[in-house]
Each structure stands twice: as C-alpha cells, then as structure tokens.
Amino acid sequence: MRYAIPLVVLGVLLAFFTVGLKRDPRLLPSPLIGKPAPAFSLPVAAFPNTDAAPLKLGNAEFAGKPYLVNFFASWCAGCQVEHPYLMTLAKQGAVTLVGIDYKDADADLRQWLAARGNPYAPILVDLDGRAGIDFGVYGVPETFLIGADGRVLHKHVGALTPEAFERDFKPLLGAGS
C-alpha cells in the first residue's frame, strides 16, 4: 500500500494544477469589499474648463447613491481599451462615474480627453498616488463600485468590459442602500 503513496500525492497535485490553470495568479481580491470606502478628498481636475476654481471633493459629496470610482490615466494602455465603454455607460446614465486621474500630467489628461470625450461626472486628481494606495490600487485601470451607504461593493481590475459590468456591477447597483 505504501508504494502507492507517491501516486496519490501526484493525483492531488494534478487536481490542484487543473484548478490553478483556470485562475489568474496576478488578480488580487480587494480586502476593502464590504468595508467603508477609504476617505478621500481630492482636487477636481481643470477639465473641461481650464479656469475652474480649485475645488476638492470627497466621500461626503457622493454619499446617498451608488457610484463608480474609476482610477485611470492618460499613460495607461488598458484605459484606452475601456474608454469607449465608459462613454457608453455615461450616456446610459445608470450610475455616477467618478474618475480619479492617477499620477498624470494635467496637459496629458486634457489632450487625452479632448481626443476621446469625457465620460466622468467629476474628474479628481491623484497626482502623488496617495488615494491609489488607500484604495489598494496596484495597476490602473481599476474600477470600484461604492454603495449608497459608502461601502465598497465590488472591485474590477483591468479594462472594464460590458460583460464584467453586467455580471458583477449591475446586480449590486441596488444594494447597499
């Protein structure tokens, strides 16, 4: 019997590998899910009006209904990919889309949005990446759904796709109130 032990160990390993093949080892679940969203208070980007007064917005201003927080940047390739879909989402108007421009130059942002359109309700600026750290952002684009009660309901890493939105975000939009 003991001569069969190696075979059993192999079987167990192969089973784990089969499951492991379907997982992405780089995809990290957020420890923030179910917890109140990190406190942020960030300056509003000077877009589209270059002469807008410097104004800060934070959690309090968005409380009361669910909203999406989308970390993006003009230098990020995945953001280009998801951008057209964000434009569609904005047109549908199902949910407020808060953009946080992550470690980006103001001029680059303006040029980028001028070419592609602006899907965001407000764009906040996270120039030094501190808000990113508080949200546990490790690779833009990342999209968070924050409920009406201010809790983080879901996090999506990478370009947001219609499938991911319908599957993961939509069912949660009514929750958290």
Binding site: A73, W75, A77, Q80, D104, A105, D108, W112, D128, G129
Partner: peptide
C-alpha cells in the same frame, strides 16, 4: 514602459 505606449508618461511627484 509597455504601458507607456500612448506616448504619455506617468508623473512622478518629488516628495520631501
């Protein structure tokens, strides 16, 4: 650098 393909670059703020 691969991500920087669109010719824009990430901003590094010099911190104290």
């Amino acid at each position: 650098l691969a991500m920087a393909a669109p010719a824009f670059a990430q901003v590094t703020v010099e911190k104290p």
